[in-house]
Design a protein around this nucleic acid. Structure first.
Length: 453
RNA sequence: GGCGACGUGGCCGAAUGGUUUAGGCAAGGGCCUGCAAAGCCCUGUAUCUGGGUUCGAUUCCCAGCGUCGCCUCCA
């Protein structure tokens, strides 16, 4: 059974399932006001790997991930560029899913949008006011965190301590709030801003409300797992939870947070610092699988440097795996080595220990390469099948087919002919030509094999 | 100021109270090869500093130094 670190309890514990045989997961999705950066790529890849692995073990997974399509930043950009805010949200969402497709990240089962849930949020806020957990000020409706007994559970800090520090920061709307940490559920709109009706005045929902309403609507109370980047732990997830607690509803049973992508200096990539790298640029420069492999070689809770050095190293490793799959192709299939798969499960069930899992894959490849030389066909077949099984469980799909066109294949045939005729000058020229075109040229007894490097 | 994470070989990155401390990339030597490439084999005497606990610590405890994160929009 899968054991995962739970941010709420600060321990690795078994992921309990509300419904036998299926897992309900809510993942906080993007606010669509700009291009996705590589940090978004990490989060989505981590949870894509989790999802694929769970499905591989035979579980049914329902993954809900939202799109925040109304937010101050979207409005700001719309104002700056004199464009309709909805236009920005729609375009950014399209760019987002294009990037996800390229990354090989599967679509969530449900993609709720904040704007589709405004009525539900208004209803929820009404309930919170009715139960005296929320109150109206001159600029919106706020949740009173003092009504939430264990507020600070995910932050692992009591409110007083949190407020004691960071005193140099301005508290938004402080003069109207009952407590500095109270957060906005509904923001009254200014003229010309997008607005929805509510009993308290025209406005728009606050950021933290949508996920509560959508997760409870689509997954129901007490769903299994809530995940997102470590920066969402507080205040976003804390505040989501606070609303659910105030409503008297059972919320997520387990909280999972992935670590950051950091820059070359080791600093977190952050929009406010301005050191973010565009995910689309990375996808232009590298095979998308390279990023997935790099992340697999790092534990999901550790920070990871995504720079050219690490990406190049992962690219070389990936090339080796692709080469293996082609080299080890033999006629007739076979069952995967069960011992290897058992080790794989053990690693993955241990808080998604993908570094150990990838080490196992590389070990299996090496053993299989030895078996090829020793003509131990059965072993080759079972190890190869295990490697393909594991990599596909992680969403790392290896190139099983030669992706070379006829002209290139013809050169490989000509190269073999030249070698047979001991015309090494011609053979070397052909090989240089192929290599300069970016191909890896492998000489074997069965003939020259050419593949993309 | 509060809370938390971390400091492992040339680089990345796991694990662990003790005979043989993953894996990847890079490097050197070898096998193979017409020569290469790919693959395989071998090599590098890695655990921030100082104390403590222990028969024994990289691992546990304390202190120090350093890095990073959260406390504010952020995956």
């Amino acid at each position: 059974m899968l054991h995962l670190y739970d941010t709420a309890t600060q321990e690795v514990r078994q992921l309990a399932m509300r419904d036998h045989g299926s897992v309900s997961i809510y993942l906080c999705g993007p606010t669509v006001y700009g291009p996705p950066h590589i940090g978004h790529g990490r989060a989505t890849l981590v949870y894509d790997i989790l999802r694929r692995y769970l499905e591989w073990t035979g579980l049914a997974v329902r993954l809900v991930s939202n799109i925040t399509d109304i937010d101050d930043k979207i409005i700001d950009r719309a104002n700056r560029e004199s464009r309709p805010w909805g236009d920005i949200a729609t375009k950014c969402e399209n760019v987002w899913f294009d990037a996800m497709d390229k990354l090989g990240v599967q679509r969530p089962n449900d993609v709720p949008h904040a704007t589709e849930y405004v009525d539900s949020m208004v209803k929820m806020i009404g309930e919170l006011i009715a139960s005296d957990c929320a109150y109206v000020t001159n600029d919106g409706v706020y949740l009173s965190i003092q009504k939430v007994p264990d507020y600070g559970l995910l932050a692992h800090q009591n409110i007083d301590d949190m407020l004691a520090g960071g005193g140099d920061r301005t508290v938004l709307g402080a003069e109207q709030k009952k407590h500095p940490a109270d957060f906005v559920l509904w923001k009254f709109s200014k003229p010309a801003e997008p607005a929805w009706p509510s009993p308290w005045g025209q406005g728009r929902p606050g950021w933290h409300s949508e996920c509560v309403v959508m997760s409870l609507d689509l997954l129901g109370e007490g769903f299994d797992l809530h995940c997102g980047g470590a920066d969402l732990r507080f205040p976003h997830h804390e505040n989501e939870r606070a609303q659910a607690v105030a409503l008297g509803k059972k919320f997520a049973g387990h909280w999972m947070h992935n670590g950051f992508v950091v820059d070359i200096e080791g600093e977190k990539m952050s929009k406010s610092v301005g050191n973010v790298s565009n995910l689309l640029d990375l996808l232009d420069q590298y095979d998308a699988r390279t990023y997935r492999l790099l992340l697999l070689q790092t534990h999901y809770r550790s920070p990871v440097r995504v720079g050219s050095e690490n990406l190049e190293a992962a690219a070389s490793a990936l090339s080796g795996l692709d080469g293996f799959v082609v080299r080890s192709a033999v006629n007739g299939g076979g069952a995967p080595d069960q011992q290897v798969l058992e080790k794989f499960r053990t690693a993955m069930n241990n808080d998604l220990d993908t570094p150990a899992a990838t080490a196992l894959i590389f070990d299996s490849v090496r053993q299989a390469n030895v078996a090829i030389d020793e003509h131990k066909t059965e072993l080759v077949v079972s190890l190869r099948a295990a490697v393909l099984e594991m990599t596909s469980a992680l969403g790392l799909f290896l190139n099983e087919v030669h992706d070379v066109d006829a002209a290139i294949s013809a050169k490989a045939v000509a190269l073999d002919a030249a070698r047979t005729a001991k015309d090494f000058a011609t053979a070397d020229a052909l090989r240089d030509e192929l290599q300069s075109l970016g191909y890896v040229v492998e000489t074997t007894k069965e003939g020259t094999r050419v593949r993309r490097g």
